Amino acid sequence: MTVRVDGVDYEFSSLEEAVRFALKMAKSKGAEVQLHNGTFHVE
């Protein structure tokens, strides 16, 4: 599972870890999280 934040990809071994990271980053940026074909994008 890959989480992309500001064009940088972060790899996670589990969906749970990836979701937690994506939500944490989105909250800190006041951004939204989108899921596309198994890849999260924080914008």
Score class of each variant (00 low, 15 high):
Glu16Met: 11
Glu32Gly: 09
Tyr10Ser: 01
Phe21Asp: 00
Glu16Gln: 10
Leu23Gly: 02
Val8Asn: 04
Gly7Lys: 02
His41Ala: 05
Ser28Val: 14
Glu11Asp: 07
Asn37Met: 07
Lys27Trp: 13
Thr2Phe: 14
Asp6Thr: 02
His41Asp: 09
Tyr10Trp: 05
Phe12Trp: 01
Phe12Glu: 00
Val8Asp: 02
Glu32Cys: 15
Met25His: 03
Asn37Arg: 05
His41Phe: 14
Met25Glu: 03
Phe40Arg: 07
Asp6Gln: 04
His41Ser: 05
Glu17Phe: 03
Thr2Arg: 12
Leu23Tyr: 12
Ala18Gly: 02
Lys27Tyr: 13
Asp9Val: 11
Asn37Cys: 15
Val5Ile: 08
Met1Gln: 05
Met25Ile: 09
Glu32Ser: 14
Asp9His: 06
Ser13Leu: 10
Ala26Asn: 02
Glu11Val: 13
Glu43Asn: 11
Phe40Lys: 08
Lys29Arg: 12
Thr2Cys: 15
Ala26Ile: 08
Leu15Met: 12
Gln34Lys: 13
Glu32Asp: 10
Lys29Gly: 09
Gly7Val: 01
Glu16Leu: 11
Tyr10Ala: 00
Gly38Cys: 15
Asp9Gln: 06
Ser14Val: 04
Val3Ile: 05
Glu17Trp: 03
Ala26Trp: 10
Gly7Ile: 02
Val5Cys: 15
Phe40Glu: 09
Phe21Lys: 00
Thr2Trp: 14
Tyr10Arg: 01
Lys29Asn: 09
Val3Leu: 02
Lys29Ala: 09
Ser14Leu: 04
Phe12His: 00
Tyr10Leu: 02
Ala26His: 04
Lys27Gly: 10
Glu32Lys: 14
Ala18Gln: 01
Val19Cys: 15
Val5Thr: 01
Asp9Ser: 10
Ala22Met: 06
Val33Glu: 02
Thr39His: 14
Glu43Asp: 11
Glu43Phe: 14
Ser14Glu: 03
Ala18Ser: 01
Tyr10Gly: 00
Met25Arg: 02
Gln34Leu: 12
Asn37Ser: 04
Val8Ile: 11
Val3Asn: 00
Ala26Lys: 05
Val3Ser: 00
Leu35Ser: 05
Val19Leu: 14
Val42Met: 05
Phe40Ile: 14
Gly38Tyr: 10
Lys27Gln: 13
Ala31Lys: 08
Phe21Leu: 01
Asp6Lys: 03
Val5Trp: 05
Leu23Phe: 10
Gly38Thr: 05
Gly38Leu: 10
His41Met: 08
Met1Arg: 10
Ser14Thr: 12
Arg20Phe: 08
Gly38Val: 06
Val19Arg: 11
Leu35Trp: 13
Val33Gly: 03
Arg20Asp: 05
His36Pro: 04
Glu16Val: 10
Thr2His: 09
Lys29Glu: 09
Val19Ile: 13
Met1Pro: 08
Asn37Thr: 06
Gly38Met: 08
Gly30Val: 05
Tyr10His: 04
Asp9Asn: 11
Val8Pro: 00
Leu15Trp: 13
Gly30Ile: 05
Ser28Tyr: 13
Met25Ser: 02
Ser13Arg: 10
Thr2Leu: 09
Gly7Arg: 02
Val8Gln: 07
Ala31Glu: 05
Leu15Glu: 05
Leu35His: 05
Phe12Asn: 00
Gln34Val: 14
Phe12Gln: 00
Ala31Asp: 04
Lys29Phe: 13
Ala31Gly: 12
Arg20Asn: 07
Asp6Cys: 15
Thr2Ser: 07
Phe40Leu: 15
Glu11Cys: 15
Gly7Gln: 03
Glu43Tyr: 13
Phe40Asp: 08
Val3Pro: 00
Phe12Arg: 00
Lys27Ser: 12
Val42Asn: 07
Arg20Ser: 08
Ser28Trp: 14
Glu32His: 13
Arg20Leu: 09
Glu16Tyr: 12
Ser28Phe: 12
Leu35Asp: 03
Asp6Phe: 11
Asn37Gly: 10
Ala22Val: 05
Asp6Asn: 10
Ser28Pro: 03
Arg4Pro: 00
Val5Pro: 01
Tyr10Val: 02
Val5His: 03
His41Trp: 14
Glu16Ser: 08
Ala26Cys: 14
Ser28Lys: 13
Ala18Asp: 00
Gly7Trp: 03
Val3Phe: 04
Leu35Pro: 03
Asn37Tyr: 09
Phe21Ala: 01
Met1Thr: 11
Tyr10Cys: 11
Val33Thr: 02
Phe40Gln: 10
Gln34Met: 12
Ser28Asp: 13
Ser13Tyr: 08
Gly38Pro: 08
Val42Thr: 07
Val8Glu: 05
Glu11Gly: 07
Val8Tyr: 06
Met25Pro: 00
Gly7His: 03
Ala18Ile: 02
Thr39Ile: 15
Val33His: 03
Glu16Ala: 12
Met25Trp: 09
Phe12Leu: 02
Ala31Gln: 06
Met25Tyr: 05
Phe12Val: 01
Val19Asn: 03
Ser13Ala: 11
Ser13Asp: 11
Glu16Lys: 10
Glu16Trp: 14
Val5Arg: 01
Gly7Tyr: 03
Glu16Arg: 11
Glu11Ile: 13
Ser13His: 09
Phe12Ile: 01
Gly30Phe: 07
Asp9Ile: 12
Lys29Cys: 15
Arg20Glu: 10
His36Val: 13
Gln34Gly: 05
Asp9Trp: 09
Ala18Glu: 00
Glu11Asn: 12
Ala22Asp: 00
Arg20Met: 10
Arg4Ile: 06
His36Asp: 05
Thr39Lys: 13
Lys24Asn: 09
Ser14Gln: 03
Lys24Ser: 10
Glu32Phe: 13
Glu43His: 11
Glu16Thr: 07
Val33Met: 05
Asp9Met: 11
Glu17Val: 03
Glu32Ile: 14
Val5Ala: 03
Leu35Ala: 04
Asp6Tyr: 08
Ala22Ser: 02
Val42His: 06
Leu23Arg: 10
Thr2Met: 10
Gly7Asn: 05
Gly38Phe: 12
Met25Lys: 02
Lys24Glu: 11
Phe40Pro: 08
Met25Ala: 05
Thr2Tyr: 13
Gly30Ala: 06
Gly38Glu: 05
His41Ile: 14
Ala26Met: 10
Val8Ser: 03
Val3Tyr: 04
Glu32Met: 13
Glu16Asp: 09
Val33Leu: 06
Ala31Ser: 08
Leu23Pro: 00
His36Ala: 06
Glu43Ser: 12
Leu23Ile: 11
Val3Thr: 01
Ser13Pro: 10
Val33Phe: 04
Ser28Thr: 11
Gly7Pro: 00
Met25Phe: 05
Leu15Ser: 06
Ser14Trp: 03
Lys27Met: 13
Asp6Leu: 07
Phe40Trp: 12
Glu32Trp: 14
Glu43Cys: 15
Ala26Glu: 04
Gly38Arg: 04
His41Thr: 08
Phe12Pro: 00
Phe40Tyr: 07
Val8Ala: 04
Glu11Met: 13
Lys24Gln: 12
Val19Trp: 15
Lys24Phe: 14
Phe40Ala: 09
Arg20Lys: 10
Ser13Lys: 10
Val33Ser: 03
Ser28Leu: 14
Phe21Asn: 00
Val8Trp: 04
Leu15Lys: 08
Val3His: 01
Thr39Asp: 08
His36Phe: 13
Gln34Asp: 05
Lys27Arg: 11
Val19Tyr: 15
Lys24Leu: 12
Glu11Ser: 12
Asn37Glu: 09
His36Ser: 07
Val42Arg: 05
His41Cys: 15
Lys29Val: 09
Glu32Gln: 13
Val5Ser: 02
Glu43Gly: 14
Arg4Ala: 02
Ala22Cys: 15
Val8Leu: 06
Phe40Met: 12
Met25Gln: 03
Phe40His: 08
Ala22Ile: 07
Ser14His: 03
His36Cys: 15
Asp6Gly: 07
Gly38Gln: 05
Asn37Ala: 06
Ser13Ile: 07
Lys29His: 13
Phe21Val: 00
Gly38His: 09
Glu17Thr: 03
Glu11Phe: 14
Val42Phe: 07
His36Leu: 13
Ser14Cys: 15
Ser13Gly: 09
Gly38Ala: 04
Lys29Tyr: 12
Lys27Glu: 13
Asp9Thr: 12
Ser14Gly: 03
Lys27Ile: 13
Val33Trp: 05
Gln34Thr: 14
Lys27His: 12
Gly38Asn: 08
Arg4Phe: 04
Ala26Tyr: 07
His41Asn: 06
Ala22Gln: 02
Val42Asp: 09
Glu11Arg: 14
Asp9Cys: 15
Met1His: 13
Ala31Asn: 04
Ala31His: 09
Ala26Arg: 05
Leu15Asn: 04
Gly30Tyr: 07
Asp9Pro: 06
Thr39Val: 15
Val8Gly: 01
Phe21Ile: 01
Val33Ile: 11
Leu35Gly: 04
Met1Leu: 10
Val3Cys: 10
Thr2Glu: 01
Leu15Asp: 02
Ser14Arg: 04
Met25Cys: 15
Ala18Trp: 03
Phe12Tyr: 01
Phe12Met: 01
Met1Ile: 13
Ser13Asn: 10
Ala22Tyr: 08
Val19Thr: 06
Ala26Ser: 06
Ala26Val: 05
Val33Tyr: 03
Val5Phe: 07
Gly38Ile: 10
Ser28Ala: 13
Ser28Arg: 12
Asp6Pro: 01
Phe40Asn: 07
Gly7Cys: 15
His36Met: 11
Gly7Met: 03
Ser28Gly: 10
Ala31Trp: 13
Ala18Phe: 04
Lys24Arg: 11
Leu35Tyr: 14
Glu43Thr: 14
Ala18Val: 02
Asp9Tyr: 12
Ser13Thr: 11
Ala26Leu: 09
Ala22Phe: 08
Lys29Ser: 11
Val19Gly: 02
